[in-house]
Nucleic acid binder design. Structure first.
Lengths: 201, 201
DNA sequence: CTATTAAATAGACGGTGTCAATATGGGTTA
DNA sequence: TAACCCATATTGACACCGTCTATTTAATAG
């Protein structure tokens, strides 16, 4: 039960999780193999199965943790945000963009529906929580919008995710990523702010 | 030289390409393996290397063909479009959304920068052509916009791609994908149309 | 102390991409 | 026609991978 090596390892599950995250950041999701994980953790290749049923379960655990982090980041950002009507754009935008550019491989993994368990209840609950927070903020700050609020939410999240995904995939390399001195992503947020502002007039 | 089996196969390269596309549509990119390709084409597992250096080269060829298709679809749409100021939104939006929903696995592969050769000159040229067409249309129809035109282009493409990617990944399953009787993606295009229209006033 | 049970090991199987050595046969030249 | 060259196809090997099985280990419960 102690955290030390009880040689029945004790907290191998935590070690495996941490090592997996290290491998993900270093080598991308293709580098997160069960066998590399076992090697890196110093156990046999059959050991991880006792803690993660298969690779899908392992990757799903990694993804859930990341969505937890993003949700927390959003909530903290919202509670610290100004009263400006569209502060949510900065909060959600920054939370996602900062996370994506800091941990590109983690971000890419979030959307690898082919590798993780889409039926996982905790996972869908987490995504719903983030989405609901977004809709709540839109409802609070864009009440008179002439557009369906879900459409605004989907449009916003789509734009942020699409930008991140294209940038992180390496497919899209903007020749000049500065717009009048500001990064492109900041300009995207301002453009969206203008959209919801005009909706009021 | 004949198209028949000259047993030195004749046009194995074309056969391999077609079979690879069939495997992609049927099983996703994970199903496009060199060995499955060879099996399906009725040749030995070592045969494909004579026509595609490795799996990356094969997948890159598939991707290039799809971007050609999309470019053609955009060009045809533009030449057939009405004189409406923001017809380009429908044209580009429909070209990408239709392609994505019709061939989900092909669309996903387009952005798998980890699997294809990002240095391929034809590939980057094709993407540039599509992007330039988009910018040209924005310049023609949104001349007085107060936003940098590249920002509008990036915002638009990001929104479309992000929506498609989230939908096709299975991560994002909208509870109700209809907005007042219209599909969500149509509402997204209308929302964007409003954005660029307000920019004029 | 003993029995049970969770956890780690070792080995196997079928799959993958890729490389090297070999065999085949069409096209070109002598 | 005959001989050669060389692109193409085959075969086998190697090192990985995920996952399954049987086996051993050690911690814990009775």
């Amino acid at each position: 039960m102690s955290k030390e090596k009880s040689f029945h390892h004790g907290d191998l599950k935590r070690v495996l999780f941490d090592v997996a995250l290290k491998l993900l950041d270093r080598d991308g999701v293709d580098g997160v193999t069960i066998r590399a994980l076992a090697r890196e953790a110093g156990v046999s290749h059959g050991a991880p199965v006792n803690h993660y049923r298969d690779r899908e379960a392992l990757l799903t655990a990694l993804v859930k943790r990341q969505f937890e982090t993003i949700l927390k980041s959003v909530e903290e950002g919202l509670s610290a945000a100004t009263a400006a009507p569209n502060a949510w754009i900065e909060v959600f935008g920054k939370a996602l963009l900062d996370f994506g550019f800091q941990y590109p491989h983690r971000y890419k993994l979030l959307w690898r529906g082919d590798l993780i368990d889409l039926q996982d209840n905790d996972l869908s609950k987490l995504m719903d929580q983030i989405y609901d927070q977004l809709c709540d903020e839109i409802e609070r700050s864009v009440p008179e919008a002439e557009f369906d609020r879900d459409t605004v939410a989907v449009a916003f999240w789509s734009m942020i995710h699409g930008y991140l995904d294209m940038r992180l995939s390496g497919m899209f390399v903007p020749l000049d990523d500065k717009v009048s001195g500001k990064p492109r992503d900041v300009a995207l947020l301002e453009l969206f702010k203008m959209l919801v502002s005009h909706g009021k007039s």
